[in-house]
Every structure is written in C-alpha cells, then in structure tokens.
Amino acid sequence: MEILKVEFLKLRKKTRIWLGPILVFWLIMIAYPLTVELLQDKLQIGFFSVLWIAILISMMLATEDIFTEDYNDGSLEQTIIQESSFSTNIGLKVFIYWFLTGIPVSILSFIFSFGTTQNFGLSLSIFPLALISSYIFLNLFVLGNSLSLNKGSVLGAIVTMPIALPVLIVLGKSITALQFDINFEGFILLLLGSLSIIIVLVPIVVSYIIRAHLE
C-alpha cells in the first residue's frame, strides 16, 4: 500500500506524463470529425477504429518515460535491492499509470462514443472495452519501454506494437459483435483473460529485463 501511495504521489506531480496522453487522446478524437464530412452517419463508420488507435497512442505516450527517471537517478537499483518484490513494484507502478491515464481515457471514450453514435447502450459497452484494452496496451508498452530503456521510446514502441495488434483485431471484432448482438460478452471475457495473463507476466518479465539493463 505504501508503494502504491508513493508511486501515486510521484506520478501526480508529473502532470505532463499523465495529462499529456489524455489531452492527445482528446485532440485525436476532436480531430477525427474534422477530417470527414460532417454527417453523423458517416462519422460513425470509422469512429471505433479511430477510438482504439487513439487509446493505443495515448497509452504509448503515457509509458514513454516510465522508467527513465528512476533509471537515471538510481531509484531502480535501490528498488531491486529492497525486500519487497521488484515485479510487484512494477505491477503497482503500471496500475497507477493506468489509474491516472487509462481510466480518464476510458471515460472520455464513453463520452465521445455517445456523442458520435447517440446510442447509450453501445457507448456503455465501450467503457469496459476501453478500460481493459487501455490496461493491456499500457502493460505492453511498459514492456517495450523496459527493453529500450535509455534508447528512446520509439524503439520500444516498434518492438511491442506487433504484439498489440492482435488486441486491436479483437477490439474491432468485438464492435461487430456488439452491433449485431452476437456474443459480445465472449470478447470481453477473451480480453479479460488476456489481461489477467498479461498483468501477471509483464511485471515479471520487465523485472528481469531491467535487471539485465543494470547488470
């Protein structure tokens, strides 16, 4: 609990890191209607694709410097030698990042979805999808950033983006399922299943990767 509090306070002070991705998400969603003809039915055609890509990009930006500062000031080395599990610390850090960026982005997803589709039920279903997918993306990009620590976040994004693409495919399919009312819950469960594996494995893998960097 103490670690959670410390990580929360640390991140809350770095407004640029958590607010930046939310604003970028917002701007992409505002920019989308400007690029197509302003007819409500036409907007709906590509809306969800833009939504998922916007979530992906905002999560990518959120994790841009997740370990850089700790790596440069030596905090990571200190965390490793602490008694508490290093992978748990990483898991909690990712959770805090999701709490401050993923949840607001998911709420905005619901709002933009309702604004575009005028369909409350559909938009309400988007909320859990956005919550789960943002957490999955965040974990994957954390993995990428741990790999490219000190080498810039672009490399990390390049190497982990292919792993995130199957999630985008599932998100696309889940919208089709939602629109035709066929087994949408199945897709939610599939994403939750993936998340439950990722949430456990990614912090462990990241802890080994960071150890490799510090050796």
Partner: peptide
C-alpha cells in the same frame, strides 16, 4: 516483429 527484433 522480425524487423523489430533485429533493430532491438
């Protein structure tokens, strides 16, 4: 992915 691995 292969290209990403090589670049990493």
């Amino acid at each position: 992915m292969y290209l990403g691995l090589i670049s990493l």
